[in-house]
Amino acid sequence: MTKDIYPILIESLQVVTVLVASPLLVGWIRVLKCWSQGRSSAGVFQPFRDISKLFIKETVLAENASWIFRATPYIVFGATVMAGAIIPVISVDLPLSATADIIALVALFAIARFFLALAGMDIGTAFGGMGSSREMMVSSLAEPAMLMSIFTVSLVNSSTSLSQMALVLTSNPIVLRPSLAFALLAFVLIALAENGRIPVDNPATHLELTMIHEAMILEYSGRHLALLEWANMMKLFLFAAIGIACFFPWGIALKDNIGMLPAAFILLAFKLALIGVFIVVAETVLAKMRIFRVPEFLGSAFLFATLGMLSYFILE
């Protein structure tokens, strides 16, 4: 009986973790940022308050917003939660993890982005179109680098399934691999770009000409905005989770091992806290770059990923 319930249990645990932990991660990053700038923070739970406030508020729709504009928040949220149900966060023994390998996961995020960009175009303002155009520029440049990075990781693990990658890495002795280091470097740059963090986009800005992500969702309000914000937080969390599963999976609960779960949770929290520190340090040190420097930024991500692939063949 427990055998039958276990997959459902672990899957729901996973989804709940993703839903709850993602605002926490963002809250943690904001708290750290406040500390680093000498301000007093609103606490790690502030994103929850923001989201619940938005849910209660009235939704104002532009007059000419079509059904695409209204459906987009739900589709974005749906695709992101779906991705959250697939990426192994606490255990590799996830019933849905075989649903999509990492390439399909990237495509799941692409659905969300596709609809966001359409919604940006839908209301017919200059900002929305600008946001969509820029977002798609960034993503189209990130894609080759992302694939190259995936290629390198899959060379090492001979799999593109995230659970399998985590399993292979944890079950083999630790080896120094320059290819993985390069792939990680590339992945970090891509993740920063995809999540609209500094130096590519500034998540905190509403300064007109520098916005990318915010420009697309400028017309959203109320529960629609709440869903989009939440999905965006989950996206950051999930990219962190992908990074952990590909490069630092040690500590994740293995197959049929419920006993490892508490330790897995603690380690996950620890890793995420470190990632938060890293993001804050990076955002404090770096300045947002000009939009047409982004191709070079992502070009270097592609270079790192390619060097990773090359060094796998040459050096390993």
């Binding site: 320059p178 280091a181 060097l307 060094s311 050096l315 390993e316």
Partner: peptide, 8 residues
Amino acid sequence: QLNSVLAA
């Protein structure tokens, strides 16, 4: 391994 990392 260390040498190949350094080479990289």
